[in-house]
Design a protein around this nucleic acid. Structure first.
Lengths: 267, 267
DNA sequence: GTGATTTAAG
DNA sequence: CTTAAATCAC
């Protein structure tokens, strides 16, 4: 018999209602214990709760709003909603935190959708870019106070390493890979010594993309970026045993522009 | 061997681009010589011309506009575009007339989409209702001058007979079956002694619906109306040999709210 | 390019 | 309920 494990997946689903069949397929084929979704794009009362229950993911914590953003954490193991941080400071639904109660008891799981930040990497001309940096700063302040083993997952909308994008030089001025974003994300990481599980298990410079734009994917040039991440507290990271990217979902019919990432832990 | 015939179909398709697969199925299964479509809902350059050519309907006359209205006549037999009447007097694409050049030579085929007329049957409170009546008046003036054998087909948006709706009394104040509309349509009919082929071959009070609202169809109460018609000049009507309603298409996947009607003529 | 929303129209 | 368009955000 095998040792007890915990598996956690994260996926920016870009409308959970539209893609529920794909979510069901992913859960059936991969059976993670917990799935964190971003960009569910629906209000809480419209979340397809029953579909998740039918799939065995009956423990659900979510925050949603009409049309945009919204995150949900669905789980086969019991959980308790722990927090909803408004790091955007404007009421947008971008975070839900839970505490695992079954296997993995005591682990805190933070599901976040960091703002995309608009097109221009300039605080003055593009307020959304400033909001993104401010969001990261607030997360940094928050990180400094963490005292429990925590897994921070979601769509960070930043590809930090040179090898996290298909063309480092070309993307230096493209929001998601600008030096200021990378530095700001670096301070967040340093504030809790967060361990980047994607790169722990798929070391740089190995290809590790999680997102391909709808605009260019059809060109087949593999213009990907690593925007989705799982960061663990050092103590929790010590138990992480693997990390994978379900890249094949990008080829599914009417796919999300992001693909799921999955981490496994020994308990 | 059989005598030469001409068959003509008419169908308010409610977006020809969205329903091209259904149109193809209808043409394959019914093989009319000519099909008149209403509510194609596209500009002329976006009409799926090649799809019709591939199906053998290579002779095409159409008038379209962005988003709404628009009519198209597609044919296996050669035709010549004859007229585009602006009976709405505002440039909307609601009519195209053709002259058949092959079998049926000399027949004029008028394809029209008469305005729905809005919700309130009141000229003052609802200008659209007045426009509908004015449209019919202009058609009446036009009818008085017809000199060639003509088939007038399309979505008239009026159910003239008591038995043309599921509940005559209940619909007396519902646009499509109000006395004023029925009378105005009656004057149009009288102006050329138009023969109502639907009722020539399916005599009143037999059920003869061509449209069921999206809003109520799911209730399964057969709340239909006969809004689509084929009217023939008396001389041409003498050659009409049959008329049918392709009601089963209303059960197809993602159907139009209207179903095709088909008339056959001996030549 | 894709999705949600709103509006207009049916 | 259904469609197209326009808008906005990503």
């Amino acid at each position: 018999m095998s040792a007890p494990t915990l598996s956690v997946a994260s996926w920016n689903i870009n409308s959970v209602r539209l893609r529920m069949p794909q979510v069901a397929r992913f859960l059936t084929e991969n059976a993670p214990d917990v799935l964190c979704l971003q960009e569910i794009k629906c209000q809480e009362h419209l979340f397809p709760r029953q579909a998740f229950i039918d799939l065995g993911y009956e423990h659900i914590a979510l925050t949603g709003q009409k049309g945009y953003h919204g995150v949900a954490t669905v789980s086969r193991i019991p959980l308790r909603e722990y927090a909803r941080h408004d790091w955007q400071d404007n009421g947008e639904a971008r975070h839900v935190g839970v505490e695992l109660l079954g296997p993995g008891e005591g682990v805190i799981l933070e599901n976040v959708y960091i703002p995309a930040g608009g097109d221009l990497p300039d605080r003055e001309k593009n307020p959304k870019f400033g909001q993104k940096l401010d969001f990261l700063e607030r997360m940094t302040r928050w990180s400094e106070g963490i005292e429990r083993p925590t897994l921070l997952v979601g769509d960070f909308n930043i590809a930090p390493l040179d090898c996290d994008v298909y063309d480092h030089k070309a993307l230096l001025k493209v929001v998601s890979h600008t030096p200021i974003e990378v530095e700001t994300l670096g301070r967040l990481q340093a504030a809790h010594d967060w361990v980047d599980l994607g790169r722990k298990h798929i070391p740089a410079p190995e290809r590790n993309y999680t997102w391909w734009s709808y605009r260019t994917y059809w060109q087949g040039k593999d213009r990907g970026r690593r925007l989705d991440h799982m960061w663990a507290s050092p103590d929790l990271a010590a138990n992480s045993t693997g990390h994978k990217i379900a890249e094949h979902t990008r080829e599914w019919e009417k796919p999300s522009d992001h693909v799921p990432i999955i981490s496994e832990f020994a308990l």
